[in-house]
Nucleic acid binder design. Sequence first.
DNA 1: CGGAGAACTTGTATTTTGCAAGTGTGAGCC
DNA 2: GGCTCACACTTGCAAAATACAAGTTCTCCG
Lengths: 112, 112
Amino acid sequence: MSDLAAALEVVGARWALLIVERLLDGPQRYGDLQRELGVPTNMLAIRLRELEAAGVLSRLPLKHNTRAYALTDRGLALRAAIVALGRWGAEQVRTANKGRDPGDHGGGVADA
Amino acid sequence: MSDLAAALEVVGARWALLIVERLLDGPQRYGDLQRELGVPTNMLAIRLRELEAAGVLSRLPLKHNTRAYALTDRGLALRAAIVALGRWGAEQVRTANKGRDPGDHGGGVADA
DNA sequence: CGGAGAACTTGTATTTTGCAAGTGTGAGCC
DNA sequence: GGCTCACACTTGCAAAATACAAGTTCTCCG
């Protein structure tokens, strides 16, 4: 199995990479992830469990019965891949507006 | 929708990125992709159609009724992302051999 | 105690994926 | 010309993943 296939086994499932992307901004709580991503709640629960089991993220207990999810080192190591894919997606979006788009000429590569 | 989400709409489906990875080595034929990836034939047909529609790859007609699939510029632009994800996957594989592995520190590709 | 917010779980419909078998087309052989 | 073969798919159906909606548990607050 190729390295890429190994990576996709962990973060190839639907929503997984998007969850990690949100977490790159710092720890988030369950409800925040759900609202910002629009992911179905049962899927979110499953993904968080899988990603925790894979060592990509960990749960930090907060007050009361709440917790936050934070990336581990292994999760943070995904930043390069996520940025690369995001850049490609941005180009995709720009050229998806087929035809010319007069008025936009800024070098708009949304950097990170 | 984030740039990452846009990217995943195109190459987030199962097998899509693996197909593109194979194509980074140059144009391939249908049968080659199927045998090397082990992807079900109907999935391969669907993915190739979608990726072509998305402008990621194109078909080149060869002799008689055979053709080859080759990446477009847009497809080639995925190389950086694929390499980054592949690197991450490689680390994943190495540390998946949890615990210490005394004596082995070479490029031991453990699994099959 | 009653209600509200957070983090899930459970049940069921819908979509995606996988497996096996079949179709069409042109080449090569006889 | 008819047969077989490889290639590039298509089709039918079962299994798995995903989505949607509702319910559950826990804790704090009043």
